[in-house]
Design a protein around this nucleic acid. Structure first.
Lengths: 210, 210
DNA sequence: AAACATCTTGATCGAATGACCAACTCGGGC
DNA sequence: GCCCGAGTTGGTCATTCGATCAAGATGTTT
């Protein structure tokens, strides 16, 4: 009943997997649970994906893509400080809007860590790299040295992850809103101080630009 | 062969469990793997613990206790700034010294989150509470209002967790040392600014003290 | 309406898991 | 010396896992 094309089914399975992973963890995300969440059959899942591993690869890609969107969306901002703030805020907002997305991200990172070395680091590393690219671009236009911005992605990542773990643990949306402000303030304090110090040592070397 | 008293066996199983959880995750930590790591038998494990759940409860307590030690060890420091720095540094150092401890902590927190509500939050919440107690005590002696320190444990926790995830993901000890410095600097920037502002609004109300 | 590809399902397989048990073996107290 | 309890072990159980299959249902093309 209700015949659904494979492409749409795959998307349903990915969404279902995100939900189940968030609720039961990576290892608790069994094919049966995912199938049930997607209102489908275990056999149906294997009709769309050769193996559970293949489905998870798509989930991985899905999460990574969503990060890419959030980060690149913060591109048009003018200064390094504003851009960094925008990225951090965007990521935290994503976690806030969809706890399942946040929880699954943490689960995937933990899962990736276990698979020694290899491709495992992908999600984390990809987000870091994209963030760094965006910041470097803005920094170049602003005339800020790369050595100043190279540490920023780590700090943003650490603050965002720390916020996520706290929010996901307590699940308190009211407290989370406050903590987003605090977290944002922490980045602001550190970064403005850092940019100020760096600015003094090497006063604006304006980039050539229209 | 080599008969070992139950008490010692239990400790061995706890240590083994921490190691296995760090490597294979909570759900990957099977009784057989834990037994093997402890150079024992699956039946032996059930001789020491009625169930896997009971063993994990002890692991939970073990981790929580270690956190307690690290945080309380940072008590004797004089100022709020120094104390906060010392706690953050102590926690990060713990993760750095024993990645298994760090990884297991993250795993346990994630695991706790899944068991909806209940006692799950224990490890995280306990560490937060202890940290807050220590800081409040120091703040009282220093004459700093509690409203200023109440947010500090969250920031310390977030920074420490963020550092842990990054370090555990990449496993780069050299990079980790640098990031510990950066992370420490972030806390310093935020906290000194915050204490300065708060100090201006309500200039020292010296606590009576020898 | 016949033929065909696409989707859907219940049943079943081997492997791994947590738990349990009956039997064995030490080692100190009587 | 013998004996009783603490420690130890291999083997077995039901359950759940990912995966596969054969067969059925549905929609489209001719």
């Amino acid at each position: 009943m209700a015949r659904i094309p494979v492409a749409q089914r795959r998307r349903d399975f990915i969404d279902a997997a995100v939900e189940v992973i968030a609720t039961h963890g990576i290892d608790g995300a069994t094919t049966r649970r995912i199938a049930e969440q997607a209102q489908a059959n275990v056999a149906m899942l294997h009709y769309c994906y050769d193996s559970k591993e293949d489905l998870f690869a798509d989930v991985y890609e899905h999460i990574a893509g969503r990060f890419r969107e959030v980060i690149e969306q913060s591109d048009p901002h003018t200064t390094v400080l504003e851009t960094a703030q925008s990225i951090l805020r965007g990521v935290m907002e994503s976690y806030f809007e969809s706890p399942a997305f946040g929880a699954t991200t943490i689960e995937l990172i933990s899962w990736a860590r276990r698979q020694h070395g290899d491709r495992g680091i992908a999600v984390y590393d990809q987000a870091m790299t994209i963030g760094l690219d965006v910041l470097r671009r803005v920094a170049a236009e602003e005339g800020v040295g790369t050595e100043v911005v190279d540490d920023i992605p780590y700090v943003i990542g650490a603050l965002a992850d720390g916020f996520a773990i706290n929010y996901l643990t307590y699940g308190d949306r009211t407290a989370a809103r406050t903590q987003m402000e605090i977290t944002s303030g922490v980045l602001h304090s550190w970064l403005s101080e850092r940019l100020h110090v760096a600015g003094k040592r090497s006063p604006r070397k304006q980039a050539s630009r229209a």
